[in-house]
């Protein structure tokens, strides 16, 4: 095929682009995590002294060390925020699965024309600004907010949810629900109805058919949805920042604070690298699963 090398050429442009703007920057983050803070602009040292030539490069590498990482492990704040990030993401993923599955399953049971409209309704918030959707919850959750107005009308006690971990969970579940529902819906909707008939024919009640056929066959969707939510949630910034309290520890927030407030760029980088190291396995899993699904669709 003569066409091969040409499409290969076409691939080169985005490949180079991603190499420069996605892959290479990670090396910079890794490098920076080995540097020290400095009162300079940019606020880190060492920097390569190109005028000194080879000696400058050598001096640069000699000055790199793991001091920043050592500093992170000594400070219990970082470890706590690392663990609590994983905790938030894992619990929220679990809640999302429990809430998202019935929604996706319910959608898949409607007639085809209705399904299109329902899908649209689920996707619509996803197109709406993330920031605005999180902001909308502030108005609901704040002490004199809509939730409490509603509760007081029924004589129920007020809830102070804003700036608590509960608010963060609500925000995470709310913001990521479409990401959980969509992959689940995709596998459930495709499911061959004759499999359910076969299960019924072989003696399954509806509930048994669900657990023996529908659910196991939807596991790829469960995996995709869980990964699609879990990974970005670990590094979530906007939700803990706007809905969480001062005690809410999450890595995204930590990086942001180190970077913007403390101007400790090496620490921010080291936290980012630690987070990335944790997420590498789920990210690879996600990539493999996506590739597999695409191969299957071929």
């Amino acid at each position: 095929m003569k066409g091969r090398p040409r499409t290969g050429l076409a691939a080169l442009a985005p490949f180079l682009w991603l190499g420069v703007f996605f892959l290479f920057p990670f090396l910079l983050v890794a490098k920076l995590s080995l540097s020290d803070t400095a009162l300079a602009m940019p606020p880190y040292a060492p920097r390569v002294d190109w005028s000194a030539g080879w000696a400058g490069v050598r001096a640069f590498f000699a000055a790199l060390d793991f001091e920043t990482y050592a500093r992170l492990t000594r400070d219990s704040l970082y470890i706590a925020s690392y663990l609590s990030s994983l905790m938030f993401a894992a619990v929220a993923t679990g809640i999302l699965l429990v809430i998202g599955y019935p929604i996706a399953y319910g959608m898949s049971r409607f007639a085809a024309s209705t399904r299109q409209a329902l899908l649209m309704a689920v996707i619509l918030p996803f197109w709406t600004s993330f920031l605005i959707r999180v902001y909308a919850w502030i108005a609901v959750l704040k002490p004199e907010g809509l939730l409490n107005t509603f509760l007081s009308q029924f004589g129920l006690p007020e809830l102070n949810l804003l700036n608590t971990d509960t608010a963060v969970y609500i925000g995470l579940v709310y913001a990521y629900l479409p990401f959980m529902v969509l992959p689940l819906y995709a596998v459930l909707e495709k499911q061959d109805q004759s499999l359910l008939e076969a299960a019924a024919d072989l003696g399954c009640t509806r509930t048994q058919a669900f657990w023996r056929v529908t659910f196991p066959l939807s596991l790829p969707g469960v995996g995709a949805g869980a990964l699609l939510c879990f990974i970005p949630m670990v590094g979530e910034f906007v939700i803990p920042d706007l809905l969480g309290g001062s005690g809410t520890l999450m890595l995204g927030k930590t990086i942001w604070t180190e970077f913007f407030a403390n101007r400790d760029w090496p620490a921010a980088s080291a936290v980012a690298i630690a987070m990335l190291a944790t997420l590498v396995i789920p990210i690879v899993l996600y990539q493999r699963q996506q590739t597999k699904m695409i191969e299957a669709g071929r």
């Binding site: 061959d192 499999l195 008939e197 076969a198 019924a200 024919d201 072989l202 399954c204 058919a209």
Partner: peptide, 14 residues
């Protein structure tokens, strides 16, 4: 269907 003592071989095999 699950209570009927007949079994079916589906056209798509299912």
């Amino acid at each position: 269907p699950h209570q009927r003592p007949v079994n079916m071989m589906f056209q798509s095999y299912a």
